[in-house]
Amino acid sequence: MADCACQGNAKDDLDLTMLSVVFEAHANDPGALIPILQETQAILGYLPESALREIARQRDIPLSEVYGVASFYTQFHQEPRGETIVKICHGTACHVAGAPEITRAITEELGVGVGETSEDMRFTVEGVACIGCCGLAPVVVIGDQTHGAVDGASARKLAKQLTRKATR
């Protein structure tokens, strides 16, 4: 593939040499674009434009294809994310057990909508479909801590603890 002529407006000046291990590991694997994106995101925390360009160059495929894949899957993020990820389960069991109420409580308390990151980059709130502990519904995962049987009041408490920790 010829180098893409457009320059984009990538301002990020990340060190992409870290990615060389990823490219080497998948050098002979034709279907490796998704694992490459996953590993890149694991290293950088998200997928900045410069990384997508580098992947396109290394794999000799159009940037549009890399972008197409990166934007298709919900796991990939093109923006940096907060330090703590708050996952609110929106699976069926959690939904009928009151996930909407919890969502309202948490987003209100944190001032961050679902799918958004707080301005100070402290937290990102995500809605996910089933975490696999439906028996404990409704479920919220903060960082790597799972909280079961949450209700509006306890959700608020959790969110408050989080903001308090963050300001400390």
């Binding site: 279907g31 490796a32 998704i34 994106l37 894949v69 899957y73 796991q75």
Partner: peptide
């Protein structure tokens, strides 16, 4: 590892995903 897309449970979509496509 999937990358978060319900439709990838459908067999032809799953195959496309393993091949590295949308």
């Amino acid at each position: 590892e999937g990358a978060g897309a319900f439709v990838c449970g459908e067999e032809t979509a799953l195959i496309a995903s393993i091949e590295g496509h949308r």
